[in-house]
Structure formats: C-alpha cells, structure tokens
Simulated scan of single mutants.
Amino acid sequence: MSDLVLRETRGAAVHLILNRPDKLNSLNVPVFEALDRHVRDLQQAHAGVSVVVLRGAGKCFSAGHDLGDIASGEKLPYPNFQAKVIERLASLPLPVVTAVQGHCYTGALELALAGDIIIAAEAAKFADTHAKWALTPVWGLSQRLPRRVGSAKAREMMFTCRTYSGREAEAMGLANVCVPDAEWEATVDAWANEIAANSPYSHAANKRLMDHTDGLPLPAGLAHEIYRGEGVGPDMRDRIAAFAARKKG
C-alpha cells in the first residue's frame, strides 16, 4: 500500500498514520486513496484488531484539505469520494480513536470527527475555516460537529473560523480528553490498550446500537435496544470464567 498512510500494529491496536509531514499531512486525493485501501482492508479482515487509532506523522494531525489541490481542480475516483471514505472509517465495527497533536483544521477536522473518541495534546489546534475560503462542508462536518459539541458551539466554530486549543476542545466536548504534549503518546497507547482489553463483540454491537438509534425519540431508542440489540457475545463465558478464576487466586 502507498506510504502516504502508514499502518502500524501495536498489540490489538492498528494505527493508521497520515504520512505527509513535509506538507503538515495536508489531505489530497492520493492520501484518501491510501486511507481507503486500509479502511477497506479492515472492513474485510479485522480479526485480532480491537481498536483503530488515526493520527498524523510528525508534529501535527493534519493542516486540512490541500488548498493547492482545490485550486487546481481535483480528479476524484467517483463523486463524493472523500466523504464516503470518511463514512467507511466512521462505520468500521471497531472503536476508532483520533489522536490529535498540532493542527487539525477544516477538512482534517471533518476526518477527525470520524473517530468515536478524540484524544488531544495541549498544543493541538482545532478550527473550521470553510467560511474563510468561501467553502461549505462536504465531508460531514455540518452533521458530525453539532452532534458532538452542540449546535450553538458548532455555529460559533463555523461562523468565526476561530482556532481552539486542546484544552478548549476538551471543555466543549470536541475532545474526550486533553493531556500535556509530553504525555500524549503514552495516553493514546493507554486508551487503546484499555479499549482493546474489552470484548470486540460488545464494541461492534454497541457501536451499531448507538449509530442506529442516533436521533430517535427516547421510547423508540429504548425499544430498539430491547428488541433489536444483539445480546450475549461468544466470549462472555470465557470472560466471566477468567474473572472468577482471578478472584479465587
């Protein structure tokens, strides 16, 4: 696969690493093509993988959509290509953690929002600058950002094009947690290991349950959980037996 997106295995976690550090990992069609190949591979064969971590090489996550490519006119493999790659990533039957240090602007923020969990370094910088360039979102930001931070805060970010620190992202709920830069790498690994220790069956089923009921009225969501939930996983007995054995020991 292309070295524009690297794949690194750390235990049961797979790290997908945007790899254009000389361009601040800015996003162009070849980067998305490389990312898509990895995501499709994980869709088809994710045995042994419990969590996906999306991150950038070097000092930042991504400066966003490559403006030079926009200006020159991108040639997409098919319409809405990038949006569909992001949707495939978000829909993986695995927890997706976005690890953000440095820049995470506009198109990069749209990509970051595919993560179920966002871990930010203090020096992270989040912004939506679509309006600065007379653009509108087409990769999902207008839908995912308000669902994550609320409509009022999303409007603030979109209308002001202001930059927010990692701590500010944590305070508004954009990031689940913000940690000092020196602790960021270890924190990402610790979260990935903590998630990977739990049942992949439950992770996939719970993710589908939340996705399928998002936006439903409470009674409809409760009914879906009761009547359409996926129930007990194949690893339940082994997990309970292992717990009981530890208690006896």
Results as ranks from 00 to 15, higher is better:
L4H: 12
L4P: 12
R7H: 04
A12R: 12
A12L: 05
H15K: 06
H15C: 02
L16A: 04
L16Y: 09
N19P: 12
K23C: 02
K23A: 06
K23M: 11
N25M: 01
S26F: 03
S26Q: 15
N28F: 01
N28Y: 03
P30E: 12
F32C: 07
E33C: 12
A34Y: 13
D36M: 04
R37L: 09
R37F: 09
V39G: 09
L42N: 09
V49W: 07
S50F: 02
S50E: 14
V51Y: 06
V52H: 07
L54K: 07
R55T: 15
C60Q: 11
F61E: 13
S62G: 01
L67A: 01
A71C: 01
S72D: 11
K75Y: 00
L76A: 08
L76G: 01
P77R: 07
Y78I: 00
I86D: 10
A90R: 14
S91A: 13
L92S: 07
L92Y: 08
P93K: 02
L94E: 04
P95C: 03
V97I: 15
L109F: 06
A114K: 03
A120L: 11
A121Y: 10
E122W: 02
K125H: 09
K125M: 05
F126E: 04
F126R: 01
A127N: 02
A131C: 05
W133D: 10
L135D: 11
T136W: 11
V138K: 08
G140T: 05
S142R: 06
Q143H: 11
Q143A: 09
R144N: 02
R144P: 01
L145S: 12
R147I: 00
R148Q: 07
R155E: 13
M157I: 10
M158K: 06
M158I: 11
R162H: 06
A169S: 07
A171N: 15
A175D: 12
A175S: 12
P180E: 13
T187Q: 08
D189Y: 02
A190D: 15
W191S: 05
W191L: 13
A192D: 07
N193R: 14
A196C: 04
S199E: 14
S202E: 14
N206Q: 12
L209P: 11
D211Y: 06
T213S: 11
P217G: 09
L218G: 03
A220D: 15
L222Y: 14
G229A: 09
E230C: 03
G231K: 06
V232C: 13
V232M: 14
G233A: 05
R239E: 15
K247D: 15
